[in-house]
Nucleic acid binder design. Structure first.
Length: 323
DNA sequence: GGATCCTTCTTCTTCTTC
């Protein structure tokens, strides 16, 4: 863009916007600099409502000419060839599930005993299915990340790092479970989760009438099961809630990868599980941060849930096909 | 009581100048 040709006022705008875009991608404190020169904690004071569309376009569109192919070529020079060669192809947007299963439960209930025939077939879980049906692109970036981490931390260091992440996630989950079941607003937590709990405190204020916690749900007709984090009312709407810990900020739903599909899968199972007598059409993904930064809460409307439900059906199809 | 399963996370780029 030839900025010099623009009028001074517009010119200033452009510079500001360009600065915002380049900084936003990695640090959300960007637009904060427009209002105050002082540095406070990152992305607390961002007017996210105002800039959300800007940030969204910046973060969702691929600007770079680098593709998985070119990156892989570069990496091969640095790390050597990848053992399992991928040919990344974008997942088809227009695909439709072969059989459209209802998201909501329809009247006639299927007796669970009836389904558990003598074969007692294997029932895969939501996470297993999602993990085994990742797109080639997802696999590529995950492998690249892992390779880089191992290069930096070593095999053992990496193992320790991931174990620590899992441990924190687990401790956080049980802390949330405790506070939601006891109802008490205790202030003291293990030091590991103190920040996370602080992070979600503003979300917890809007959570009422918990219906289920860490409950196993199984779809009566589709062959899968899972464990739902939480079913409760969030701002007056009954939701399947998924609590997440994250090192990086995830201000947009698109930053949460397959999490929305996971939530839709749980809701669909719940709605078609004879053990549960209610229907849940909405979802909520809460991303908590260790430093206590306010968590991002992503609401999933019933329309959105239906979209992700269809995506889930596709993944389920892929999974059964590959077996 | 032991074994197995589920879940817990991890990806999405750039290198220009104040």
């Amino acid at each position: 863009v030839n900025v010099t040709l623009l009028l001074p006022a517009i010119q200033l705008r452009y510079i500001l916007v360009l600065q915002c875009t380049s900084h936003f991608a990695r640090n959300l404190s960007a637009c904060h600099c427009l209002r105050s020169p002082k540095k406070r904690s990152p992305y607390v004071s961002v007017d996210s409502e105002r800039y959300s569309s800007l940030v969204k376009t910046v973060m969702s569109s691929r600007v770079s000419s680098r593709t998985p192919e070119t990156i892989q070529a570069e990496d091969e020079n640095i790390f050597g060839p990848v053992v399992k060669t991928q040919t990344p192809s974008s997942r088809q947007d227009t695909r439709v599930p072969k059989t459209l299963h209802p998201f909501l439960h329809h009247e006639e209930t299927v007796d669970p005993e009836e389904l558990e025939g003598p074969g007692r077939s294997f029932v895969p879980s939501v996470t297993r299915i999602l993990q085994q049906t990742l797109s080639p692109e997802q696999i590529f970036y995950l492998e690249r990340w892992k390779k880089r981490m191992i290069a930096e931390l070593g095999e053992d260091g990496f193992k320790e790092y991931t174990q620590n992440l899992f441990r924190q996630g687990n401790v956080f989950h049980s802390a949330v479970e405790d506070i939601l079941t006891s109802g008490a607003t205790q202030q003291e937590y293990p030091p590991d989760v103190q920040g996370y709990m602080e992070s979600i405190s503003h979300v917890l204020e809007d959570v009422r009438a918990v219906r289920a916690i860490e409950s196993t749900v199984q779809h009566d007709t589709l062959n899968y099961l899972g464990i739902v984090d939480c079913v409760a009312y969030y701002r007056g709407v009954l939701c399947v809630i998924d609590w997440k810990t994250s090192e990086k900020p995830k201000p947009f739903l698109s930053n949460t990868y397959d999490n929305p599909i996971q939530v839709a899968a749980y809701a669909g199972a719940l709605n078609n599980d004879g053990n549960y007598k209610y229907q849940v059409e909405n979802g909520l993904i809460v991303v908590a941060y260790k430093d206590g930064t306010p968590a991002h809460a992503h609401q999933l409307s019933s329309e959105l849930m239906l979209e992700y439900w269809n995506t889930w059906l596709l993944r389920l199809e892929d999974f059964t096909e590959q077996r």
